[in-house]
Design a protein around this nucleic acid. Sequence first.
DNA 1: ATCGCATTTGAAAACGTTTTCAATATCGAA
DNA 2: TTCGATATTGAAAACGTTTTCAAATGCGAT
Lengths: 338, 338
Amino acid sequence: MANIKDVAKAAGVSVSTVSRVINDSASVVPDKRQAVLAAMEALQYRPNSLARALVNSRSDCVGLLVGEIDSPFFGALMAGVHHVVHDSGKHVIVTAGYHHIDKERESIRFLLDRRCDALVIHSKALPDDELVQLLELDIPIIIVNRLIRGWEHRCVYLDNEYGAYLATRHLLTKGHRDIAYIGTNIAIEDGADRVHGYRRALEEFSVPFNERKVVRTFPDEEGGHSAMAEVLNRNLGVTAVFTYNDAMAAGAITLLQDSGHRVPEEISVVGFDDVILARLLNPRLTTIRYPIYDMGALAARIVLHQLDTKFASADQPLRFTPRLIERQSVRDVAPVAV
Amino acid sequence: MANIKDVAKAAGVSVSTVSRVINDSASVVPDKRQAVLAAMEALQYRPNSLARALVNSRSDCVGLLVGEIDSPFFGALMAGVHHVVHDSGKHVIVTAGYHHIDKERESIRFLLDRRCDALVIHSKALPDDELVQLLELDIPIIIVNRLIRGWEHRCVYLDNEYGAYLATRHLLTKGHRDIAYIGTNIAIEDGADRVHGYRRALEEFSVPFNERKVVRTFPDEEGGHSAMAEVLNRNLGVTAVFTYNDAMAAGAITLLQDSGHRVPEEISVVGFDDVILARLLNPRLTTIRYPIYDMGALAARIVLHQLDTKFASADQPLRFTPRLIERQSVRDVAPVAV
DNA sequence: ATCGCATTTGAAAACGTTTTCAATATCGAA
DNA sequence: TTCGATATTGAAAACGTTTTCAAATGCGAT
């Protein structure tokens, strides 16, 4: 492939001049400029971005770490980041950590090694102190979906406790009193937060918390399916289920329907996330909206801004508030006064 | 950030020696090796991959162009590529073209500029000759999901005609005779192929093709929804619908159910792709399995192999055959002999 | 013609690596 | 000891850019 020297030779000028016309970094007399342009065209010249990044120490890349590549949730996150990064003429390099500590660590190394200008990180597996170490590097980094005490201005996160509270409260106001919670068996903060929200709503309605009503499995459709089976098995007389995410809700609904229980007539279900799937299920899933696309977009905007100004602009609220999306998977048992 | 010179200085050796221990490229006496290792550790040294790529002209990156970042279909494609590329110690850079010619072009430029070692490309918008131009570059490239005549050995693709044939034939053998086709309004090859398959099956059963029974819209849920409305509107007495993809099927089913038609009792539906969604819909969607994960994985394996051997290994079949996944969205109208 | 100034230009250094090549150190054998 | 062969080392060139700096050119005013 042609390089800048070839172009210079072909145009009969020095490499400096070529560089100047490429970058518009200084004035060049019209005829030479034309000659250079012509040579570039003729040789199909494309600047080597690696060499460029090396000397500028700017790669025009934003690194993004997600949990999985193929999941509607992370799809939305990636799309949000992609969108704003592309709009600013830069590019995204995505890696996946698959919720595994070593893979997450390795992925972040990779992004750092590639000399990404900035990072947006979604990590569930890495411990706080390791993330703090990263934040202390002098490259713009935003942590998505996780709150690290003392670093609130670098974390874009959702109020998980409130989301779970909303979901549970919704079921309670609809008259449900026996509500199971199908949670994640991964030891992460938001898992705990959601249990708290669930309990808070219960307490508010003076419904005793029953540990047997919570079942934890892997947070996917499969997990929801088996967890639901377990709940049924325990014979607790539940009339409603709240799940850690929509995929689990889908699994739970599948099991319910297959085992002859009608949703929501017999058992109501509330999910979490509001991925595309939720609208498509039958019955359409009542769920908690997790604005992950917007959160990704915001995270990207912040790191990009930091890149320009060297300052973290802490003036915007980084905490998102979930809201209830009412669809068809919850039945009104009986009107109840709050 | 520390560079190789700093390490050399700290360890009291030359940069060449440091390079040698980093890459294990030549023997170094044990004490010096230890000193270097210690210095690297102490300085938290990480080689600059840009500089390295520049001199080696190997970036250890595979570039991937997809249609959209957030869609179950492309999610599976990305996952397949990611999987095999990571296993070989390399990395993936993903870009999205959003089915737009300029964006696809720009994305490919980006990947090429980044000096990706190889490319896996899913393009619907770029014309054949532009893709051929790429294939003629001397870097390993595989085109996914598209067949370019004369370049069969560089294309990993699905037999779309056969997939559509399978779907339509399935409906026909179940006794359906009035079958609508909800297709894509994007002028792409596989769109045409699927119409052909649909027609071929019809002909085989001596059912006349009726242009009014095919409606083309944008290939997403929304499009399926409005297309289904249009089909109903035309009052053609259809008892079954075959759609271009699962998302459209989901939209169609939603419309049917909302307008009081039971699926499959009144109207049967067959989709295409078999994305996760298909299993989760109610009724579970009978569809055509598009092994896109495997296709991505194969494409990646091929380019990686080419990278090592400089030869395209054309010994594996690059054409995938779709198959029917029977679930619950098709009703058996009456037994019919083929 | 000559001077001073502004514009345009090219040579060379820098970015952080790997690799070639020649020099040195080590060692066993004569 | 001395020789040759071998193992280890470091200096320097190379990769393809950008940028600094000094030199060359052009031009209007005297």
